[in-house]
Write a protein that binds this DNA or RNA. Structure first.
Length: 950
RNA sequence: GAGCCUGUGGCGGAAUUGGUAGACGCAGCGGACUUAAAAUCCGCCGGGGUAAAACCCAUGAGGGUUCGAGUCCCUCCAGGCUCACCA
């Protein structure tokens, strides 16, 4: 089926474009490009750099090289960027188009464990294979800039950035209240000089709930404090900090995972159950950047869906924080308040009970001050049950559970006592971990109140015909004292003002975004440049001692357990070192220190790789100034293409690092990626039984015709339906790019993937359709080359129709490439080769330039046959004449009441009046409007005439 | 449950952004060339209707705005993606 080689027979011309010829042409030119350094882009200051040209920095999301090799999804985005880069180069840009490898992280380590081969070996093999496969496509990457995140030269700088972040804090007041990162030493000198009050960072998540005052507690003058206190205070401000956190612990993977790496209560990698467990972990204070990460989205040329996803992930919501005085069992006010966050402070009169998360401090306190209503045994049992519940269980069963704590709070508005419950539908890590429950206006609270028979008070008047439970819509307030009659917005404003005046509460903005859990207990990652002294205090390793090399480890099998043990702890010689060895300033060189044994997560290396591409060999700096000024410019990367699965994680993390580096003057642009684009997924076909289960394609046969297929599952003899499905090994519908290239060549493969449909759409792979693009390459070839002799063939004189069509193609292809609309650009090529049978040398010259970005190999072959000695890749993009795009005569439809009834053939610039006259004079139209009144004639010059008559 | 996206011939998809629906490719059908086939070239190719036209229907369904709707608005259906007890 469709094997291009089988089309050869004795009568086939010897120089017809064939799969065999494609192999020969492609490999030959690929070697030549490499030898010539055709795609090597010099940096500012280097030989061959042309400073007069504008820059174009175009990047693919680099791949994670797996043992399985490239699948057909990879080259989709890569072909798109390749075409754009080739086009931009021809349009006079200096093009930075690099490729590298995201190579640390869990999948490589899991694979190594399965195969028993060290991840360093499997990873390097996979990289070599990926590189070979990518090069076979003829992509115009500047391979001299290649690196992997596992290279010591690279992760040295990853660690360097980590240290930068570690040694800085977020000054919320800086930059007119927007806040920015500053060196931690600035903070310390402020403390020492007394310029700044010494107190724990009131915004530090790890101290939520600590201190009596929402604004933190004054620790006293710096000189009166002991070293431990000073360190605790300073550390509470660091952008990278250690904290006991309830983490997503995955026993199977033997590591903690970030929230983002947990899907439906299962680990994204492997799909293993995840539990909550308190662990001491490195965190990034990304929440300090919530507002800036959100605001920055506005100016980015990114897909809206991606911006929305990030915005929702950051999850800004406005509301109020309100304090409810706590009343113990005996009715005694204890002087503390229960703080809650609510977006509906206007409903406070309807707060009939309170709920705190099972991990909330008040649960312990309730048991400590137990009154007669407090059943301590049941409470602790419930708290234990709730914390052992995996997220997957929580999501599968949303039946409300909870228990009364035996204590009350006083509603500051009604003065009534309200019972306090604990329930796991309230999360400790959002807001304050406590809510005021208003069942009248919140369905979750309603469900809980119904189950536990708690009172329900409506405070917003529902519409007359309202029949649901909780009413969340707008309406005048009721049962609400001073708020009665006000609509929601006014009621909110009024109650917040009232609360502020009475020091009960205040307006507050809350974010869903949480601090970023940055340590993993695995082997295959960047070591932290951190050591601990004998008192357990952490110290940054000196910059001169970077990189902290990952120690060789023969046994990297994770310990499957409930008590986390970082794998690096096994490298005892490496772990135990001295301050001098590790390069710690301010300590005696012989002091014994131990190294941090956690490693960084896979995201670390991909957070900043775009910067290193600009200056990959720089041993002095992460990126040189000249390289940064030129390539990153104002807005950073000019085009970044990759899958939308990275819409939140990678792209948010990278923006965060970039912002910190911007604040610390490491980078000069505010955002890393000015324009972002997601290529769609390439899917495949599979078959579905009536019960929706899937059948692999090799277990199905078509018992109908091509036109009217009737698919049957062979073994079962039952009909199945053909559907679009993801490519997967189990469905046997995976396409291997190597096979396709062997059968048709890389040029055809490139064209096919670009012709399948819009770049952003997900599209099913249809092996049958490839032949059409193969024929296109053959036609391109045949248009220029005599198939019998292999020599160029030329037309004696330019044909007008062909010349016109050529101008059209030049215009259309250029336009479409700029719009990333490659499928329509290729359609224009089809149209051209369908019209043109022979070209003059001058026409051929332009034709070859235009196909160059799409089919670089066959274009280069013809280009050189034409006598050119330099690559078509560095030729100029041809120009075209606007006048040639206009037809001599166009067809204008005449509509009557919006339906086409006749057509006019006129010059394209025929004016309104003439068109109207011609339309009304048309005999067919006269028949139709006879006896009717012409009410109106709409004339759109160059488009149509519409007559309104009745 | 919330948000976003998509729905056009047998299939993949076009449509100047409100102006002739179905460009281009695949598949199919007919023809030329050939002893024959492949390849190549030419023609046809949404449905109904007609001798051929005319004409009617048609962009998931139903309404609306408009001289005119695949495109804009409302309701619904189907599929996909994202988030999800977030207060």
């Amino acid at each position: 089926m469709g094997n291009a080689d089988q089309q050869h027979s004795d009568t086939t011309p010897t120089n017809r474009y064939s799969a065999q010829m494609a192999q020969d042409i492609e490999l030959r030119w690929q070697r030549w490009w490499e030898a010539q350094g055709t795609y090597v882009q010099p940096n500012p200051g280097e030989d061959g750099f042309d400073a007069s040209k504008p820059k174009y920095f175009c990047m693919d999301m680099f791949p994670y090289p797996s043992g399985a090799g490239l699948h057909v999804g990879h080259p989709e985005g890569y072909t798109a960027t390749d075409i754009i880069c080739r086009y931009k180069r021809m349009k006079g840009f200096n093009v930075l188009h690099p490729m590298g490898w995201d190579a640390f992280g869990l999948p490589a380590e899991q694979y190594a464990i399965q195969t028993g081969v060290h991840p360093e070996i499997t990873t390097k093999t996979a990289i070599d294979n990926f590189r070979r496969q990518l090069q076979r496509f003829g992509f115009c990457y500047d391979w001299t800039r290649e690196f992997g995140t596992i290279d010591e030269d690279y992760y040295k700088w990853t660690q360097w950035i980590y240290l930068k972040v570690y040694h800085s804090w977020f000054d919320v007041e800086a930059d007119r209240g927007k806040g920015k990162a500053r060196p931690i030493n600035d903070l310390i000198s402020d403390f020492m000089s007394g310029k700044r009050t010494v107190k724990l960072n009131p915004h530090a998540v790890e101290y939520t709930g600590a201190g009596d005052l929402p604004d933190g507690t004054d620790a006293g003058p710096w000189e009166t404090l002991d070293n431990e206190t000073r360190k605790a205070v300073v550390d509470s401000y660091r952008l990278a900090y250690l904290s006991q956190q309830t983490v997503n612990w995955c026993p199977k993977l033997g590591t903690a995972l970030a929230n983002e790496e947990v899907k439906d209560g299962l680990s994204e990698r492997g799909g293993f159950p995840v539990f909550r467990k308190p662990l001491r972990q490195w965190m990034f204070r990304i929440t300090a950047y919530s507002d800036r990460l959100l605001d920055g989205l506005k100016d980015l040329d990114w897909p809206n869906s991606t911006k929305t996803q990030q915005a929702e992930w950051i999850g800004r919501s406005e509301g109020a924080e309100v304090g409810f005085p706590i009343v113990l069992g005996g009715g005694m006010e204890m002087g503390e308040t229960l703080r809650v966050f609510t977006t509906r402070p206007d409903t406070i009169y309807g707060a009939t009970y309170m709920v705190v998360a099972p991990e909330h401090g008040l649960v312990e306190m309730a048991m400590e001050f137990a009154g007669e209503d407090t059943d301590c045994d049941q409470i602790s049992e419930y708290a234990a049950w709730a914390s052992n519940r995996s997220d997957i269980e929580r999501q599968e069963n949303k039946e409300k559970t909870g228990i009364f704590l035996g204590i009350h709070v006083r509603n500051p508005l009604t003065e009534e006592l309200i019972p306090v419950w604990t329930a796991d539908y309230v999360m400790m890590n959002y807001g304050t971990g406590a809510i005021m429950a208003v069942p009248g206006q919140d369905q979750r609270d309603w469900d809980f109140a119904k189950k536990f028979d708690l009172p329900i008070v409506r405070t917003v008047t529902p519409p007359k015909d309202f029949e649901g439970d909780a009413y969340t819509g707008d309406g005048p307030a009721m049962n609400s004292g001073i708020l009665d009659g006000l609509m929601i917005d006014d009621a909110k404003a009024k109650i917040i003002e009232w609360m502020s005046e009475h020091h009960i509460g205040a307006k507050r903005v809350n974010f869903k975004l949480r601090d970023w859990l940055f340590s993993r207990q695995r082997y295959w990652g960047e070591p932290f440049p951190i050591v601990f002294d004998d008192r357990g205090n952490h110290h940054g390793v000196g910059e001169d001692s970077l990189p902290v090399r990952l120690p060789p480890l023969a046994d990297y099998q994770p310990v499957e357990s409930d008590t986390p043990q970082p794998l690096l702890a096994k490298a005892t010689d490496w772990v135990h070192t001295t301050a001098g060895e590790a390069g710690v300033d301010g300590m005696h060189p012989d002091s014994k220190v131990t190294r941090e044994t956690n490693t960084m997560p896979g995201w670390a290396g991909s957070c900043w790789y775009y910067l290193r591409y600009c200056d990959p060999k720089n041993s002095e700096k992460l990126i040189g100034d000249a390289a940064q000024d030129y390539w990153m410019g104002e807005g950073g990367v000019d085009l970044y293409i990759g899958g939308n699965e990275h819409a939140v994680l990678h792209l948010l993390y990278a923006r965060f690092w970039h912002m910190v580096m911007f604040d610390l003057d490491v980078v000069k642009s505010q955002e890393p990626f000015r324009k972002l684009f997601h290529q769609g997924m390439i899917t495949s076909h599979a078959f579905q039984r009536p019960n929706k289960t899937l059948v692999p394609i090799d277990e199905v046969e078509n018992r109908g015709t091509e036109e009217k297929p009737a698919y049957f599952e062979t073994a079962e003899n039952t009909p199945v339906e053909r559907i679009v499905a993801k490519m997967s090994k189990s469905l046997k519908n995976v396409v291997n790019p190597d096979d396709v290239i062997e059968e048709y060549g890389a040029d055809t493969f490139r064209l096919y993937e670009m012709y399948m449909g819009p770049l952003e759409a997900s599209k099913p792979w249809n092996t049958r359709d490839i032949i059409g693009l193969y024929r296109l390459v053959q036609k391109m070839w045949r248009l220029c080359i005599d198939e019998a002799t292999g020599e160029l063939k030329f037309a004696d004189a330019a044909d007008d129709k062909v010349e016109k069509q050529l101008h059209r193609m030049v215009a259309k292809v250029g336009d479409d490439v700029e719009k990333l609309s490659f499928n329509t650009a290729i359609a224009a090529m089809f149209e051209f080769v369908n019209v043109a049978k022979r070209l003059t040398k001058d026409q051929m010259d332009r034709f070859v330039r235009v196909i160059g970005p799409f089919t670089p190999h066959v274009a280069e072959e013809i280009w050189h046959k034409m006598g050119n000695e330099t690559s078509v890749a560095v030729a100029d993009w041809p120009s075209f004449d606007e006048a040639m795009l206009v037809d001599d005569e166009i067809e204008i439809p005449i509509q009557v009441m919006g339906k086409v009834r006749a057509r006019l053939h006129v010059a394209p610039d025929t004016d309104v009046k003439t068109l109207e006259e011609m339309a009304l004079a048309n005999s067919r139209i006269q028949e139709l409007i006879e006896g009717k009144t012409v009410r109106k004639v709409v004339v759109v010059p160059g488009r149509l005439v519409n007559i309104v008559a009745n």
